[in-house]
């Protein structure tokens, strides 16, 4: 359903019917007794130069989606087209070559850098693996990269433990930039940082996006951060996409009851403004045996009989707003 507004933009990454089911082994013979349906049949498109955010609570499959696109975990089924080529159909060595176009920034800046490598080794290795810069010019390039992310040239031979969390995250960003990627997946990239550092790193990501024409898939549970950085937002619940829209439309006019509940949880910095909170009852159901029909019906304040049996399809509300709910159809 390519609408007029969308057809003008060029799709960079197209995810179709992606499924990621993790087997649960049990019994004495280690047979597969069940599956955790972490991501269950989702489709979406990322357009060149935009920032698409995935939000949702823990366990909704947002990080799994990112890892599946990068084939850090092999997805169960589906296809991921990057510039028209299916990443999931590629051989291991073809995929290794493709990896320079898709980079990732991880959540934990303390775990994402090898503690035994200095900055120059970390970045030098990135350059060496894909042979982006000839060996003789690597050190210059590393210093250039450090400059882009706001680190000093004299920090080049330091080790990760000599940096603060924010600085380490900058090294992680520099490592991703070293590959001159087109798409960067930011997997909770600022969640582990202090709020003040978060803002700095977010602004850095934004300015790098302008400078290098990057496309971001930004995975986060923090709606404030998402509002700051995104062009479009995708809301996930229990392995399914429930709503996907441009930022303004989603924040101003959320359609799905789950999105509404999520947004009502954002604190408002004005005590006099009374805000109606939608409190969701109960826990997220298990992704091993997700509810039939609409996955949200067990906690939805507006659930109808139909929701228990029929899976709502993602339907367009208008040009840039799609939602999967029986209420809006």
């Amino acid at each position: 359903m390519i609408t007029q507004a969308e057809s003008k933009k060029k799709p960079l990454l197209k995810v179709n019917n992606l499924k990621q089911h993790f087997p649960i082994k049990g019994g004495i013979f280690g047979r597969t007794v069940n599956h955790v349906k972490a991501v269950d049949d989702i489709s979406f498109t990322i357009y060149e130069g935009e920032t698409l955010s995935i939000v949702g609570e823990s366990g909704c499959g947002k990080s799994t989606t990112g890892r599946a696109i990068l084939r850090l975990d092999e997805p169960t089924s589906g296809s991921v087209f990057f510039e028209g080529q299916d990443l999931l159909a590629m051989s291991k060595s073809q995929m290794r070559n493709m990896r320079k176009h898709l980079q990732v920034i991880f959540q934990d800046p303390f775990a994402s850098l090898n503690p035994r490598q200095s900055v120059s080794q970390i970045l030098g290795e990135a350059l060496a693996i894909q042979n982006i810069v000839p060996a003789g010019k690597r050190r210059e390039r590393i210093i250039e990269l450090l400059g882009y992310v706001g680190l000093r040239p004299d920090q080049i031979d330091r080790f990760p433990h000599e940096f603060s969390g924010g600085q380490r995250q900058r090294i992680g960003i520099a490592r991703a930039l070293a590959m001159q990627p087109k798409l960067i997946i930011c997997d909770e990239a600022v969640s582990a940082l202090d709020v003040s550092i978060q803002a700095q790193v977010l602004n850095l990501l934004k300015s790098l996006q302008r400078q290098f024409k990057l496309t971001y898939l930004f995975i986060s549970h923090d709606l404030g951060v998402v509002r700051h950085i995104s062009d479009r937002v995708m809301v996930m619940y229990l392995g399914k996409v429930v709503e996907i829209a441009d930022k303004k439309s989603l924040f101003d006019n959320p359609q799905h009851p789950y999105t509404q509940a999520l947004l009502s949880a954002i604190p408002v910095p004005d005590a006099s403004k009374k805000q109606e909170r939608i409190i969701l009852r109960g826990d997220v159901p298990s992704p091993i045996n997700p509810p039939t029909g609409c996955r949200f019906h067990t906690r939805c304040p507006h659930a109808m009989d139909r929701c228990k049996t029929e899976i709502p399809a993602l339907t367009s509300l208008h040009d840039t707003h799609q939602v999967a709910c029986h209420l809006v159809q």
């Binding site: 890892r67 850090l72 980079q103 775990a111 090898n114 290795e125 693996i129």
Partner: peptide, 17 residues
């Protein structure tokens, strides 16, 4: 399972490295 192994993998390093 540490993230830096994932990071190296996503750079395109082979298993031997």
């Amino acid at each position: 399972k540490l993230e830096y192994i994932d990071a190296i993998r996503s750079l395109g390093a082979n298993d031997f490295t």
